[in-house]
Computed example of a mutant assay.
Amino acid sequence: MIKVCTEDFDLGLLTNELRQKSPQSGAIVNFIGLVRDINHGQSVSKLFLEHYPAMTEKVLADICSRAKKRFAVDHIDVIHRVGELDLNSQIVYVGVSAMHRGDAFNCCEYVMDHLKSEAPFWKKESQNGQQVWLDANPSDVAAKARWEQ
């Protein structure tokens, strides 16, 4: 499942759904990204995410397809929220089921590293009363690059 939406998600429900989709799996790994109150030393009060719907879902599907070819996993779910998000709100969910935990952990990290660098999301933070559009984070680009070595 790949979903881009404004509404929040329930980790317990998503985990149960993932278990039902792949009952043969021996491992499930979940990742949830949250809105932080500080970014690059600046105080953050809100985050706003925009995207281009048809393109975003296609890129996320492509990332998951490449991950499935690289790792022995049974299923990958990705949910990414858009719109205005308050501090500590859930932004992104990646759930991976696999026979073994190593593939599940590695696949989850691979998906996140590629999502952060490839998925067409535009982020704007409210920092100290000002709206600031964010550029690509060099650490995200470096995290993705390590998979290409």
Rank of each mutant, 00 (worst) to 15 (best):
N39E: 12
R36S: 12
L18C: 09
A72D: 14
A98Y: 02
R36W: 00
S139L: 14
K144A: 11
L85N: 00
Q127M: 15
L13K: 11
L14Q: 13
D8C: 05
W122L: 08
E148S: 12
E57R: 09
T56W: 06
E50K: 07
F71V: 10
S25T: 07
V29K: 05
K3V: 08
A142T: 11
T6A: 13
R19G: 04
W147H: 05
S89N: 11
L47M: 15
M55Q: 00
F9L: 11
S25M: 09
S43M: 10
G129S: 04
A104R: 10
L60E: 06
G33S: 01
G33W: 06
C64I: 04
D62E: 15
V94P: 09
L14A: 13
R70L: 14
A142E: 14
G83P: 00
G95W: 07
E109Q: 15
N39H: 14
Q20H: 13
H40Q: 15
L47P: 03
W147A: 01
P23S: 05
Q90C: 04
C5D: 08
K68S: 14
Y110W: 11
L115A: 07
Q20S: 15
Y110C: 09
V35Q: 04
V92R: 00
D74W: 06
A142Q: 12
W122Q: 05
Q127L: 09
F71T: 12
V132N: 06
A136I: 03
L115D: 06
A54H: 10
K124T: 15
R36A: 12
A142D: 13
